[in-house]
C-alpha cells in the first residue's frame, strides 16, 4: 500500500522568519492526522503548503492520484491542481465565510462542486444537495436559504457538506470547530467523526483544541516555532507527553 500523502522536508519561509521547517510525514488512506500547537507555531502555513494554497520553499508533497499514482503536487500543472481541489481534495476553513458563497443558497453551495465537474441536471443536483444537507443535519426545507440566514454551527456544517459532496479522499481542515460554542462543537465533532469513518476519509486537521484531536485524530504532530517537536499516536502523545512543550500544552487544558 502506498501512502495517500507523502510529505518530505517541507519548509516555508517568510523572509528571514520561519513559517514551518523540516516537516515530514506519511498519511495513509483512512487515517486522520492532527496538527496541534499554539498560535504562530506554523500549523496553518503547513496546511496551506500541503493543500497547494501556498508553494513550499523546500521539500516535496507527493499525492497518490487516482489515475496516475503518486505525483508531486508542486510539479503538477495548475489545471491539474485545481481539478484536485474540486474533486479529490476538500478544504474546510475555520471561518465558514471563507469557504462558502454567502450570496448563493445552501443548495447552490453544495451543488457547485457537482456543476464544476459537469453535472447539468438540475433535479439530480438538487436531490444530492438535499441528501447532503440531511447528512449534516440541516433540514431539507432550508435548501433555498442563504448561508447568511444560518447560525455559525449550521454554516460550518454546510461548508462540510459542500466539500464532501464530491466524494473526496483527502480533507484538509483548519480549526473546524473554532468559534463555535461547546455544545455545537460536540455535535459537529460527532458528525465529523461519523462521516470520516463512514466515507473512509483521510484528513489533516489543524487545531489548537486538544479535545478535537483526541476525538478525531489517529496520529498527532505537535508543532512549535515552525518545527514538529513531537509526533506519535494521539493517545500516546496526549497521555504520555515527552517534550516539555507538549507537557505544558496538555496540562494547560482547563478541567471542568
Amino acid at each position: 500500500m502506498t501512502p495517500l500523502l507523502q510529505v518530505r522536508d517541507v519548509a516555508k519561509f517568510y523572509g528571514p522568519r520561519v513559517g514551518c521547517e523540516a516537516v515530514s510525514f506519511d498519511l495513509w488512506p483512512g487515517e486522520v492526522m492532527g496538527v496541534v500547537g499554539e498560535s504562530g507555531s506554523g500549523k496553518s502555513t503547513l496546511l496551506a503548503c500541503l493543500s497547494g494554497q501556498m508553494a513550499p520553499d523546500q521539500g516535496v508533497v507527493i499525492y497518490d492520484t487516482r489515475d496516475r499514482g503518486p505525483m508531486d503536487t508542486r510539479a503538477m500543472s495548475e489545471p491539474e491542481r485545481r481539478m484536485l481541489m474540486r474533486t479529490d481534495w476538500a478544504l474546510v476553513h475555520q471561518n465558514p465565510r471563507d469557504g462558502l458563497r454567502m450570496g448563493v443558497s445552501a443548495g447552490g453551495n453544495v451543488g457547485e462542486r457537482l456543476m464544476a465537474v459537469g453535472a447539468r441536471h438540475y433535479g439530480d443536483i438538487r436531490a444530492r444537495a438535499v441528501d447532503w444537507l440531511g447528512r449534516v443535519e440541516i433540514a431539507a426545507e432550508r435548501v433555498d436559504d442563504r448561508p447568511t440566514a444560518f447560525s455559525g454551527g449550521m454554516q460550518q456544517r454546510l461548508q462540510i457538506a459542500r466539500n464532501l459532496v464530491s466524494g473526496p479522499r483527502l480533507v484538509f481542515m483548519d480549526e473546524p470547530t473554532g468559534g463555535l460554542d461547546v455544545s455545537v462543537q460536540a455535535r459537529l465533532l460527532d458528525l465529523l467523526r461519523g462521516l470520516v469513518r463512514e466515507m473512509g476519509l483521510s484528513a489533516v486537521i489543524v487545531t489548537h483544541d486538544l479535545a478535537v484531536v483526541r476525538l478525531l485524530a489517529d496520529r498527532l504532530m505537535v508543532m512549535k516555532d515552525g518545527r514538529v517537536i513531537e509526533a506519535g499516536l494521539t493517545d500516546q502523545v496526549l497521555d504520555d507527553p515527552q517534550h516539555g512543550y507538549t507537557q505544558l500544552l496538555v496540562s494547560s487544558v482547563l478541567q471542568v
Binding site: 495548475e78 458563497r101 448563493v104 443548495g107 447552490g108 464544476a116 465537474v117 438540475y122 438538487r126
Partner: peptide, 29 residues
Amino acid sequence: LEPRETETRKMHALEEYGLMHVKLYEDIS
C-alpha cells in the same frame, strides 16, 4: 459570482465554468 478579475481570467483560461451554472441553479431554486 466572482468579484476578482485575476480569478475570472484564470477561470476562463482553465475553462472552469461550473460557477455559471450555479447562477442558473439559483434562478431555478
